[in-house]
Design a protein around this nucleic acid. Sequence first.
DNA 1: GAAAGATGATTGACTAGGAAACTACATCTG
DNA 2: CAGATGTAGTTTCCTAGTCAATCATCTTTC
Lengths: 153, 153
Amino acid sequence: MTRPPPVPALQDHLGFWLRLVSNHVSHAFAARLAEREVTVAEWVTLRTLHARPPLSPSRLAAEISMTRGAITKLADRLIAKGLVRREADPEDGRAQTLALTPAGAALVPALAALADANDTAFFAPLDARERATMEKLLRRLVDAHGLAALPVD
Amino acid sequence: MTRPPPVPALQDHLGFWLRLVSNHVSHAFAARLAEREVTVAEWVTLRTLHARPPLSPSRLAAEISMTRGAITKLADRLIAKGLVRREADPEDGRAQTLALTPAGAALVPALAALADANDTAFFAPLDARERATMEKLLRRLVDAHGLAALPVD
DNA sequence: GAAAGATGATTGACTAGGAAACTACATCTG
DNA sequence: CAGATGTAGTTTCCTAGTCAATCATCTTTC
């Protein structure tokens, strides 16, 4: 008499809860950004380019963990919106640089306020100590697995 | 003399770390599943249908937080792979029911083992107490925001 | 019991991103 | 310095979702 192999529930995995909560925060944030016609990936790009010297698409791709192909399209969109400027690198005929336009730079603080508000509202059910604990544990996982400093995707 | 508005870094938000870690666990899991030619959404579907009475697409959509349109296509894929069966609901001319085929049911335990292995490996840097803490905090957020906590019932 | 509205599922148009092929330029090596 | 190899960016094709429109059926209401 063989019994069926035990199959743990989805909820038995910490990864499940992580994904559920993470998806929800991101979705809530995406909804706020959508009112400004900006996606999360676009926000991350704008924030990454903010107050820094121009960055090559490849470098940006690595920093925000997207492929170079995706950056080409993302940059196209941001350029079409007048938020980013693309220029040829004078020192390397293959390379480009991306930088914020004044309009892009002006938009960042407003979007940052949305990010703040979203984070504050979502994690309000935890007190300061608990939030610190959560960050500590998450950072431990990041360190232990050598994750790239930045996400998206 | 006005100074520029302060713009917090991406890393200053707990949501940032959550997304970074969550994306990584999910990606690692997706890579394991890919060897069996299964996506994460397909796994969640198979697991949800496992050892339960047939479920309508709408109900499934609600449980796994996807649109009905997405479920139609997801089900088409799983049916094409011979893992799921779709039948007309005899009691409601509009409705359908989805259930696992024997092949689908047989696949679930193998995929569940992958899920276990992935979760265990990823969260190994935390000890049991820390993992329990993390789950407790995540569940608190889920409850506080009334997130669709999947199955139940 | 007929019209109006609600609900279940599918479809088509659209979006964002990945993978891999491709182009152009750079660099290395003999 | 010529050919081989490497690198930056773009392009094409594909996948997997959402959203909105649609069709069929069920339910409600008068």
